[in-house]
Design a binder for these strands. Structure first.
Lengths: 344, 344
DNA sequence: CCTGTCGGCTAACTCGATTTAGCACGGCGG
DNA sequence: CCGCCGTGCTAAATCGAGTTAGCCGACAGG
């Protein structure tokens, strides 16, 4: 039981020194002079007794608990959000830190309550995370604590921020198609995600579009069309492309995520168009779906794991403190991109 | 800052009482007599000053921290594992508890280290979780602490256990097909998941098969064939059904999960067989895929959220302490099941 | 022999709560 | 008037560390 835990006092008594001396030895402080022999004796007895410092007690005194609070809007909506958490947990573990995970469901009251609960337990630092890139202001409550923004960007709250490099991801996607020989007939499915609830689009959508357009323009061309979709789910991708195919025959399709691409595949199949022989498809996110589709989907990966890892690194090694860190989104080349039909 | 936090002593001083009295009032203990007027005065000053008890200090004294440790083998492999965590977090929050999440990657040394870290921080109780149902023994380190097993079953470690009711799920799937009129030509894709690494199959596989066979036998029939798949991913479902279609024409297919069903859809499509007109398909898990497929897939849902919720409930309200709790797996009826072709 | 310094330690306080033991006072019975 | 009891509170110990101030002895310098 807890009561039988070995305490610092036990070690000190057994080693025949004062608690003070034991404390200095075991917390590795050198500014107090302890004879080498004594030092070793304390270390040995500590090891022998299996002493582990009670971090609750230490936390009370020093206000350092070795616990990071992860405040997330949602945990489970995007399947790969778990990867963010995994990256954070792994990195925290490497630094002997644990992570309190909390989900706010985007409810300010719940958020406030959860942060309070964490403050009541003297959490050292906070990860303020969003499961898709967006603008979001942490509550004032967090103002005086170390915070890293993960996958979200704040204007009035100043903190180091880690986001995917969506602009370069746009470049990457466009470049992949250009390299395969596509210049015309490149349609974008999903666009900036410009809807009633998200007027002007979402961050990822805007930045990806920006990257795509820049890269295409550099090559002297541009998207043949951009089709906005209200929801980025297969059904809307299916409908967008079904409509498109009624009018014209695309050479390549850039889908704003894999779910849209899934629907796009379904629509192409119904029109007896083969991927990639007739139409090339490239996408973003690189979720499981991408490798499950037939043919396997080329996708620009969201670096979820790296986001989590980088954010915790920023918290534990503040010297890294750049204010805005853009994590690269690597291209996962699979089988859905080929030279345009007219080339073969 | 932390140093400016209001302490119990501040409240006591302002209210003109001793810390003892303030403590008794604020922790709501009635075994010590405090005059109603004094009581109110303390409550008022506490509210006025915005007093929040320092739970680290309380934890040191009482050994109760209000923190639950969640030890999971993996966090991110199955997309819906996040739902387990969400269920646990929500329920913990309702009980004013926070959750330390840790991932062991099935590594005993890492597991031991993480549990130690949690014990060093006086965690109240543990959720020992697995992301797919399996036999797994918690380490001896946990023996003297409150533990609930989540989605895993131990033989030598005695603790309340929460698992999905896979046997009844098997009944449910079989019953759905029987109700639609299928009796013959029902093939099972995936079977018990009997492979080299998992000889005898996995728990979910075995129990689902048991349920399926029992229910079919009650109706005087049985599976036309059971095809084991080494991996439960789309590609293997695709191959299993491609092979099957070389020999015979199934009436209905039971897939052991949605990913297999995805591959099954792809194979059926290639053979120009329509779902559900030519072949009915039913599956397990009810992941996102199920609703994305065309036609939408009928699936028996894994109650991830409920698993997490139930497990935390068992921890916080031990009187519920049944030793093995099987959480129902509800049927999500969609469009992939219809009467057999010969009926229409 | 006296003073100063330095190495090597310890006593005692602190963090912010909970909890045990017991004090002071008023009223009441005898 | 004394003793007893119940009410209403407080002093002080406690949890397990970290931290400050300072003691003690040896040794060197004057």
């Amino acid at each position: 039981m807890q009561s039988s835990r070995v305490t610092l006092a036990d070690v000190a008594r057994k080693a025949g020194v004062s608690r003070t001396a034991a404390s200095f030895v075991l917390s590795g402080r050198t500014d107090m002079r302890i004879a080498a022999a004594t030092r070793q004796r304390v270390l040995d007895t500590a090891a022998e007794l299996g002493y582990r410092p009670n971090l609750t007690a230490r936390g009370l005194r020093t206000n350092v608990t070795g616990v990071i609070g992860l405040i997330s809007d949602t945990i489970a909506t995007t399947p790969y959000a778990g990867e963010v958490i995994r990256g954070a947990l792994d990195t925290a573990r490497e630094h002997d830190r644990l992570v309190l995970v909390a989900e706010t469901s985007d409810d300010h009251e719940i958020e406030h309550g959860l942060i309070q609960q964490m403050l009541d337990r003297s959490v050292d630092a906070f990860l303020y995370a969003s499961m898709f890139t967006q603008e979001r202001e942490p509550p004032a409550l967090l103002r005086d604590y170390p915070v890293v923004l993960l996958n979200c960007m704040a204007t009035s709250f100043s903190a180091p921020t880690v986001v995917p490099d969506e602009i370069r991801a746009g470049h990457t996607a466009a470049r992949a198609l250009l390299d395969a020989g596509h210049t015309d007939g490149i349609h974008v499915i999903g666009g900036r995600h410009d809807t009633v609830t998200t007027p002007g689009g979402v961050v990822a959508g805007r930045e990806r579009m920006r990257g795509i357009e820049t890269e295409l323009r550099k090559a002297g061309t541009g998207p043949a069309s951009v089709i906005e979709c209200a929801w980025h789910v297969p059904d809307h991708g299916y409908r967008a492309v079904s409509d498109l195919l009624g009018e014209r025959r695309p050479s390549a399709l850039i889908c704003m995520n894999d779910r849209l691409a899934f629907g796009v595949y379904q629509a192409l199949q119904e029109h007896h168009l083969r991927v990639p022989e007739d139409v090339s498809v490239i996408s973003f996110d690189d979720s499981d779906l991408a490798s499950w589709l037939r043919p396997a989907l080329t996708s620009v990966a969201l670096p979820h794991y790296e986001l989590g890892r980088t954010a915790v690194t920023l918290l534990t090694e503040p010297e890294h403190g750049r204010s805005l860190l853009r994590v690269p989104m690597p291209l996962r080349s699979r089988a859905s991109v080929a030279p345009p039909a007219s080339f073969s």
